[in-house]
């Protein structure tokens, strides 16, 4: 399912925190549908309803305050033991293409798009195209070549991706690409990300190793100081 011109993003906010997250980036994305998810993490010990009884109104107020600051998007408030499954459920219900994390950017001019391979590529490019068509930022497509892989493969991937964006109606001048041969995608993305205002990443099914050792993606997202837009892998 590739959609153009109908981008919906989910923005999860922890409403148990008194300090609202930095979401200035939301005001610079142009005409994008936003679903604001306020989640209240519930420890295993408590019944979710117990915390809702006590903190429901306060949490709703916080969520309303965040929403008011950013143009009054759709709001959902959930009390949950499991943040991840709540994000998944709400993203499914509201048909969201991507999930935005908070970060320090105050403008959105430059977008970094690391690409791994063909996995999820169509969806990522569709989201990037929507983003570029809705606003006026420029994008850099980026690929980090694996240690013993042929760099020309990466070039091909990136050039093909640029063409796809142009096919979607994006002005070719707003898109460039970069290839890295350092062999360490994680460091590349985190370092390069600092020069950009937003990073668009593709979500992938975690491998067994990632399940045990920790998710590479969430590791990158945590390390990034700028906001990240994680494109969901629905299939």
């Amino acid at each position: 399912m590739v959609r153009i011109g109908d981008l919906t993003i989910l923005v999860p906010v922890d409403v148990s925190e008194a300090e609202p997250p930095v979401l200035d980036v939301l005001d610079h994305l142009g005409a994008v549908e936003v679903v604001l998810l306020g989640y209240f993490p519930v420890p295993d010990q408590a019944e979710p309803a117990l915390l809702r009884d006590q903190y429901g109104p306060g949490a709703a107020d916080r969520l309303d305050a965040v929403a008011d600051e950013h143009g009054g998007p759709v709001e959902v408030l959930v009390f949950t033991h499991d943040r991840e499954s709540t994000i998944d459920r709400i993203a499914d219900e509201y048909d969201c293409d991507a999930v935005l994390t908070a970060g320090r950017s105050t403008v959105v001019d430059r977008v970094l798009v690391p690409l791994r391979g063909d996995l999820n590529l169509d969806r990522i490019l569709a989201v990037v195209a929507d983003l570029l068509l809705a606003g006026d930022e420029t994008a850099t497509l980026f690929h980090s070549v694996a240690e013993d892989a042929d760099p020309s493969q990466g070039e091909l991937l990136l050039m093909g991706a640029v063409d796809r964006l142009v096919e979607h109606g994006v002005d070719r001048e707003r898109v460039d690409w970069r290839l890295s041969e350092s062999g360490d995608p994680r460091t590349d993305i985190v370092e390069l990300g600092a020069e950009y205002d937003l990073v668009v990443l593709g979500e992938t099914e975690p491998s067994l190793r990632e399940r045990i050792m920790g998710d590479v993606l969430s590791d990158i997202v945590d390390a990034l100081e700028v906001p990240a837009l994680v494109v969901r892998d629905v299939e």
């Binding site: 979710p48 809702r52 429901g56 709001e75 408030l77 959930v78 949950t80 033991h81 709540t86």
Partner: peptide, 13 residues
């Protein structure tokens, strides 16, 4: 508008 008081997630499979 948020739902009154918020939803309650079911998380145990």
């Amino acid at each position: 508008m948020s739902a009154e008081g918020g939803e309650l997630e079911r998380t145990l499979g």
